[in-house]
Design a protein around this nucleic acid. Structure first.
Lengths: 340, 340
DNA sequence: AGAGTCTTCCAAAGCGCTTTGGCTTTGCCG
DNA sequence: CGGCAAAGCCAAAGCGCTTTGGAAGACTCT
């Protein structure tokens, strides 16, 4: 059942039927009702390919997915996706993943935009002066950055959590508890979120006249194994830290293992706070010693980004609106006063 | 730059240019070269929307993604996606995720197929007599099932690992080590993979005249917390098992925690084997006691499925070819002889 | 030389929708 | 009652590609 047939059986022109269906004003309300009704009754669904060709709109949002033998997709992605799906589902918005060589994302962005495959894209894990953001901005497709870049000479729409504030609060708590030597096990320090976390932590220390020893900060891909290695390195050096802030729950697993392997205990010898993106399958309260966290649901962020992308596509949102979400500090058993 | 312009500047018809570009035989090799050359020089890329409308082919593969407030996307998905991306990237194949209400997937499948949004789909986490498989089969779109259904009255193409064999081998090893009371912490027993694993385990026990106590099998969503709960329940009952087979590494984390909480040890009191889908961020060899596993890379499966979908789209693969991959049994420190 | 066969190319008809540019009809006003 | 604006509808022209149904020319064969 296509427009032509529908129009014919209603004894109307395609024009009118099309307009009636798409809510244009120049059609009698009475006729519109008739059309709507017939369309529903016959299960008419406009052919998206045809509509696409005519309008250039695809009704899909895009994500350029870096892949490669050496590239692992972050497990956070799945949670983000859940959120995105939560919103998109109820709006018949589909998501197009365009896998790309991690070293040449530009080509893929250009292709996706040139082909008008999607109406909007989002960018995740941005870095300072992120080239993708600049590119997408000049290509002129609606977009939102999940996270923030820095040092770009233009404003752009983004959704970020207050990473600096979160780690500032975490560190402040630790300092209040008497800790003087803090350590940071961070994610890839090429990414802005990691920079912000370190910044927040340093700021809290500075406020108390303390500093972050360079040997006390690690920046690694966030795996359990790397958490373990980093923690061992930190804890086996002279002047080892008494408290650790950690950028992910997964790394925290490794940290806990390292602490145990070294015959130390949490929080007796080491206090630990990690950032929790809220996974359903790994919860900080279930760690052998319940883990203090800075918490922010990445899933909610996914839903919000889908919502804002949809708003941008339909012109309801414009300009470079940045949104920064506060982060909860949840104190559990893994922090205590510094050892004497 | 579109076909018309290109044809015009070559003083050829659109027909000929189109045919030259798409490798049809009825065009002089000399002209073809000229066309190809000009196309490349001017960076001509056929408009996918137009091509879609004309051919009905979209050049994308689809996945219907169940979502909902109560639905969590499996973290395995991300690894599968990595694999899919590995292949798709080099073939400019995009993936369309269509989020759907988990309770009404049929509507979404129908929409996706009716709209010809994608050229092929894959289905994951199948159940016995899976309705999606039956649906997609009748809808007539190329597809592959990741995993297997059971009890359908037709054959279909799938890619599965030998879950039954894997757990059979695992159980056989445990029995050989003298264990008599095995337990199984399984995933959702509505899904075929879980059924097969249980079947494999029972078969191995039966071969030695043993049986699997019904109180010794749990079927839960695969989270750390559920692994913990299941293990506690198992280990606190009378006639507690001395060995546990566990369907995922994430649950195994919980099992290890439970064992420790109960003052027991691995492998002294409890032997543990888990299935490992090979996550980059959580490795069995890094468990406090290195974990024995049945191992199969879900990422490789993703790549293979993309490859086969592509083959089906282009007609290179046909029929109901099923592919079953063997699973490695990797023995590490978490298994030992049964306690006396 | 005439008939038949390839080879090579083209004009034009879709694919199914949106949108432009009218054309009637109706209602209102002076 | 004539004129004008608004309301309601339509025919047809795209969007950019593929594909059908020739047609012209070159070649082969008898």
């Amino acid at each position: 059942m296509n427009l032509k047939q529908l129009a014919h059986m209603l004894a109307l022109s395609q024009t009118t039927v099309s307009r009636a269906l798409n809510g244009y004003p120049e059609v009698n309300e009475e006729t519109r009702r008739r059309v709507m009704d017939a369309a529903k009754r016959h299960g008419y669904r406009p052919n998206p390919s045809a509509r696409r060709l005519a309008t250039g709109k695809s009704g899909m949002i895009g994500y350029v997915l870096p892949t490669g033998a050496a590239v692992d997709i972050d497990p956070h992605f799945v949670e983000f996706l859940s959120g995105l799906g939560d919103y998109a589902r109820s709006h018949e918005l589909d998501l197009v993943l365009s896998p790309t060589d991690a070293d040449d994302q530009e080509t893929t962005y250009r292709r996706v935009v040139a082909n008008r495959q999607v109406d909007a894209v989002y960018i995740s894990s941005p870095r300072p002066a992120d080239r993708r953001v600049a590119l997408v901005n000049t290509l002129g497709i609606p977009f939102i950055v999940h996270g923030r870049s820095e040092g770009l000479d233009f404003d752009y729409p983004f959704l970020d959590i207050d990473n600096e504030g979160a780690f500032h609060e975490a560190a402040r708590l630790l300092v209040q508890l008497g800790h003087r030597r803090l350590a940071l096990i961070n994610g890839d320090d090429g990414e802005t979120f990691a920079i912000h976390r370190e910044r927040g932590l340093r700021r809290a220390l500075a406020a108390s006249g303390l500093t972050l020893d360079d040997r006390h900060v690690c920046s690694v891909v966030m795996t359990e194994e790397n958490g373990y290695r980093a923690a061992r390195r930190l804890l086996e050096q002279d002047g080892a830290p008494t408290a650790i802030a950690c950028s992910s729950l997964i790394m925290a697993l490794g940290v806990v293992r390292a602490v145990r392997d070294l015959g130390l205990s949490i929080p007796g010898d080491i206090s630990l706070i990690a950032h929790d993106d809220v996974f359903p399958w790994l919860k900080p309260e279930n760690f052998s010693v319940p883990l203090s966290t800075t918490r922010s649901s990445i899933r909610r962020a996914g839903a919000r980004i889908a919502e804002r992308l949809a708003a941008r596509i339909s012109g309801l949102e414009e300009g470079a609106r940045g949104e920064v979400w506060p982060v909860d500090l949840v104190v559990r058993g893994s922090v205590a006063g510094a050892p004497a």
